[in-house]
Amino acid sequence: MIAEGLETTGKYILLMKRVFSRPERIRVYLKQYVKEIEQLGINSIGIVLLISLFIGAVITIQIKLNIESPWMPRWTVGYITREIMLLEFSSSIMCLILAGKVGSNISSEIGSMRVTQQIDALEIMGVNSASFLILPKILALVTIIPLLVTFSICAGIIGAYCTCWFGGILNASDLSYGLQYNFVEWYAWSSFIKSLFFAFIIASVSSFYGYSVKGGSIEVGKASTDSVVSCSVLILFSDLILTNLLKL
């Protein structure tokens, strides 16, 4: 199992070496990059907003119900909601969700291209297929992810306000005070920095699984599942390391 793991890591590094080689025609790569931003990033905004809105609301309700005490200031709910959204949910948990949506999309797309010989066709033309297919995806996801994180934080906070406006769970002014209380700007930056690493993991690991497919449609499905599992594990593992490295 260790040997297999080392072999897979070696293959991944070799693929990345091919991915980060000089593009044949930058204009064509740029076109691909813009296309990937739309496909991987813009098309994910909806799900990011929806999930973050509901999670923001649910966190607010749960905290309000569980820490209700005469000793606890009312603004604590807003403060904790902000910290959860900013520190973990919008970067790490959102990227775990994106590993499922975007990661499986990438690995199945590249895997299908492999089994239908489209990658062979690129190679025969003299195109560095690894770079042409994978580099724009990595760059697109790394570029768009801070935007998705920002949207997620905002949607989470709107969700929290919704519990005040429509549920009457909390007073909106208490929530506002808590959301602004003792704000540390670095937490937002560390969230963006973490998300950049996670974006790289999602795009590169999923592409690796798709690119390495051998066989037919069953293997494409298996690669898609494997990529989601590997991305999730790697995101959680690197979250642990990055959180330690980026602490104040």
Binding site: A121, I124, G126
Partner: peptide, 18 residues
């Protein structure tokens, strides 16, 4: 890579970009 630009190939599955 230069030589490959002198090649054309027709695959069994046509291998067109979907």
């Amino acid at each position: 890579q230069k030589l490959r630009r002198e090649m054309g190939m027709l695959f069994q599955s046509a291998a067109l970009f979907d």
